[in-house]
């Protein structure tokens, strides 16, 4: 599942550090946005071993809540 179509059910938020991933996890939990902290899948490369799996449909809301520069977000990619 590497296509970027809107039907992809999950995406992952990648981070520059573990601390950034943990901080983002707290923000999404506070906003009641479904998420799951998982190990970065083998086929994706990231600085941090953790990433947050989210519903692809929530991507825009997540982007708003986690400003990339401020929160060390590397990107959001489909799973």
């Amino acid at each position: 599942m590497s296509s970027c179509d809107a039907e992809t059910p999950y995406g992952v938020v990648l981070f520059r550090s573990v601390q950034a991933a943990l901080a983002a996890e707290k923000i999404l939990a506070g906003e009641k946005i479904a998420h799951k902290l998982i190990a970065v899948p083998r086929h994706i490369s990231s600085n941090c071993g953790f990433c947050l799996r989210i519903q692809w449909a929530d991507r825009e809301a997540v982007e708003r809540l986690l400003p990339a520069e401020k929160l060390g977000v590397e990107g959001i990619v489909p799973l």
């Binding site: 573990v18 943990l22 799951k36 902290l37 998982i38 190990a39 953790f50």
Partner: peptide
Amino acid sequence: EELGERLMGAFFHT
């Protein structure tokens, strides 16, 4: 604990 619990969660997912 903060790290260990999350590593454990990631382990079972993997």
